[in-house]
């Protein structure tokens, strides 16, 4: 298993390198630069700025020195916010984004998996159609529509929950997490329904029933493990998506997260900030995919032996 993890980490290095390289040259290909503004900056000032951030050097030199900094864990200074480093800004935004992502993930798993399992127990009945059509709705409704809708219903009409803020009033984290979770909840519901339907038709489920076990035990003990495997595989990419896709929700609910910095940086041609967040997100995506694979292997005894080298 350790070998498997080690190999996967090794594979991650070239992937990251490609991400860094492509992003580095692409952002510089885009018209404009960090210091171009509507009001033209005097040429000597521009020159001084460019010299300060080494933008007057050949691009290849810039690239190599960036790689060198990166290897030391330094994302460099922000071009747009003088005096602040990208590391500081990430450190300021990441906690809120991570927390939001984690909550959303919990909601998505809890609601999505239960809805999927419930639907799978009685396929093609009301018990199936109602959660599944709700799930379809969740996939179709974008978060910029769902967010304001939640605010209106739960915040303004019902007055149950606060409509903005982050950690200021109790309960203000629920609506953004729910909004962010909606699409993933729906997708997980569909995955778990498919997985459970598949598993519940297996012969070993009939064996479990033939033992006279109560139905809930058949489902939870014998069915759930196999049925959740497609969901586990999806958690990795889903979590990465939750983190990097939180921009809309962060904007709607006024959350001081990383997503907002990311999008602003792109508009501002804040080269180092774009690079920093991209590298960070890429790393997270690789990490969570690896984590999901490890869990999938751990859940499946046959694969577990394969990686232990016992053979099957």
């Amino acid at each position: 298993m350790a070998r498997f993890i080690f190999m996967r980490l090794l594979q991650a290095i070239p992937v990251l390198l490609v991400v860094i390289t492509v992003t580095f040259f692409l952002v510089r290909l885009a018209p404009g630069g960090p210091f171009s503004a509507e009001k033209a900056v005097p040429p000597e000032v521009l020159k001084a700025l460019e010299a300060r951030y080494h933008l007057d050097q050949p691009v290849v030199n810039q690239y190599l020195s960036y790689l060198g900094d990166l290897a030391r864990g330094d994302f460099g200074p922000s071009f747009k916010y003088p005096g602040r480093s990208v590391n500081e800004m990430i450190a300021a935004g990441l906690p809120a984004t991570t927390e939001l992502g984690l909550y959303a993930m919990c909601f998505a798993l809890l609601i999505g998996a239960s809805a999927g399992v419930i639907a799978a127990l009685k396929p093609n009945s009301a018990q199936d159609y109602i959660p599944m059509s709700t799930a379809m709705l969740g996939i179709c409704l974008p978060s910029f529509l769902l967010g304001p809708l939640f605010m209106l219903v739960f915040g303004v009409w019902l007055e149950w929950l606060p409509v903005s803020g982050w950690g200021d009033i109790p309960g203000d984290k629920i609506l953004p997490a729910l909004t962010l979770a909606s699409g993933y909840t729906a997708y997980i519901a569909r995955l778990s329904r498919g997985g459970m339907l598949e598993v519940m038709s297996q012969d070993y489920i009939r064996t479990a029933r033939a033992k006279g076990l109560p139905e809930w035990k058949v489902v939870l003990k014998h069915g759930l493990r196999g049925g959740m495997i497609p969901v586990i595989a999806f958690i990795g990419p889903a979590f990465a998506g939750l983190l990097s896709g939180s921009f809309v929700v962060e904007t709607i609910f006024q959350i001081p997260g990383l997503g907002r910095f990311y999008v602003q940086a792109a508009f501002n041609r804040d080269y180092t900030m774009i690079m920093g967040t991209t590298v960070l997100f890429a790393t997270l995506i690789i990490f969570f995919n690896l984590l999901a694979d490890i869990v999938a292997v751990w859940l499946n005894p046959r694969l577990r032996d394969l990686y232990r080298g016992k053979g099957a």
Partner: peptide, 13 residues
């Protein structure tokens, strides 16, 4: 049952 390959739960000891 017939097929002992599929009639035992592969996820449980």
């Amino acid at each position: 049952f017939q097929d002992p390959m599929t009639c035992l739960n592969p996820y449980l000891t």
